[in-house]
């Protein structure tokens, strides 16, 4: 099971805080973006087009990162902490 977390404007677009997907032991980010896009096409597109950062288990990863079963994936809009 892969858990996908939505934050800020992505959470509002998704209408929920997270999704869970059963996609096998290892998948690419493109495969995950297809799974997300099946229900949330705009968010799937943002991930596929690398318009947002992606974290896996709390670290930002490159687009060729392989996601393992059990991972927590964060979809991260541009940060705006501080002032």
């Amino acid at each position: 099971m892969i858990t996908v977390k939505y934050f800020a404007q992505l959470r509002q677009m998704a209408g929920k805080e997270e999704d869970q997907f059963e996609l096998g032991p290892q998948i690419t980010l493109d495969q995950l973006s297809d799974a997300i896009g099946s229900n949330l096409p705009k968010i799937g597109e943002l991930v596929r087009d690398k318009k947002i950062m992606v974290s896996v288990n709390f670290d930002v990863v490159a687009s060729d990162h392989i996601i393992q079963d059990g991972d927590e994936v964060g979809l991260l809009p541009p940060f705006s902490g501080g002032i």
């Binding site: 800020a8 541009p78 940060f79 501080g82």
Partner: peptide
């Protein structure tokens, strides 16, 4: 440290203005 916080830390700011709510992209 404040520059690095803004660059690397997953925190998001939403402003409520007279025109509505806006998620700030970056500052």
């Amino acid at each position: 440290a404040i520059a690095e916080l803004k660059r690397t830390t997953p925190i998001w700011k939403k402003e409520t203005t007279t025109k509505g709510e806006v998620w700030v992209q970056s500052t």
